[in-house]
Computed example of a mutant assay.
Amino acid sequence: MQLIDTHQHLILRGRLGYSWTAGIPALAEKAFTPEDYAALTRDKGFIGTVFMEAGVDDADYQAEARYVAGLVGQGGMLGQIASCRPELDEGFDAWIEECDRLHVVGFRRILHVVDEAISQSETFRRNLRKIGRKGLPFDLCFFARQHGLAEDLLMACPDQVFVLDHCGNPDIASGAFASWAESLKRLAEFPNLYIKFSGIPTNCAARPVTAEMLRPYTDHLLACFGPERTLWGGDWPVVDINASLPEWIDLTRELCRDLSADEQRSLGVDTARRVYRV
């Protein structure tokens, strides 16, 4: 099962600020570089990556995309998903235009850690529609309890392609399966929404993360979206909180072992190529 990693972070400590990593022992002090990533994924069946903005401090999000643009084409990096601020009109159009020159294949604004009203404003939605008119996807990062906010955005922006990150962030540690499963099924009814097979080891209580712990969630996800609307993501180095990247790759293959070869190719490679046009 070959893979395009659609959620490759880098933590370029010393160059950019990552205040959110403070207090997370696995991430708080180290840098996580392209060389580190290459060592972890060697001989793991990777055929490319898409960089995902790494939640840098607000002052640095444009600097991050400008720097990463110089890495595209190296080490299998096919493009980048850049951060943006749709809630602000000032500078938004200029930033989206500049990103045309930065190998940007999609955008994200992390929404699960900000005021929930941000995504409900008409300014946010008007600017989001501009991204849709450019034919670029927008990644959504919400907790399971916030799926209603995602549903509101999907209804407000029907011409925007969305990708729901991290399997919709189920609270696996608390065993909160039923509510996540119900709201995920509703979200899957929107044809402009894809989902990312990523991030869920972090939602477990602790190591070791096993396929048996994750299977109810991934089986339901695949039943709702199908492999043709599912993309794979490594979420490194955040995945290090509860599992290494090689462990997550091995878990993925175990969880997908009953899929056909065509279905594995859709989830691992083809959906990523179609959604991010890489």
Rank of each mutant, 00 (worst) to 15 (best):
S19K: 09
S19F: 06
G23W: 12
A28F: 07
E29G: 13
K30V: 14
E35T: 09
D36N: 11
A39D: 02
T41M: 15
T49L: 14
T49K: 07
V50N: 10
F51V: 14
E53F: 02
V56E: 15
A63C: 09
A63R: 12
R66P: 01
G70H: 03
A82I: 02
R85H: 12
D93A: 11
E98Q: 12
R101T: 10
R101K: 13
H103L: 02
E116F: 09
A117K: 11
I118Y: 15
E122A: 14
T123A: 07
L128A: 00
G132L: 05
Q146L: 04
P158T: 03
D159R: 08
V161F: 03
V163H: 01
C167Q: 01
F177T: 04
A181M: 12
L184G: 01
K185V: 04
R186W: 11
A188W: 02
F190D: 11
P191C: 10
S198N: 07
T202H: 05
T202D: 06
N203K: 14
R207L: 15
R207H: 11
V209P: 08
A211K: 12
P216S: 04
A223N: 07
L231S: 07
W236Y: 10
S244C: 02
E254V: 06
R257C: 07
L259Q: 12
L259I: 04
D262C: 12
E263Y: 10
R265D: 14
S266G: 14
T271Q: 04
T271K: 08
A272H: 08
R277V: 08
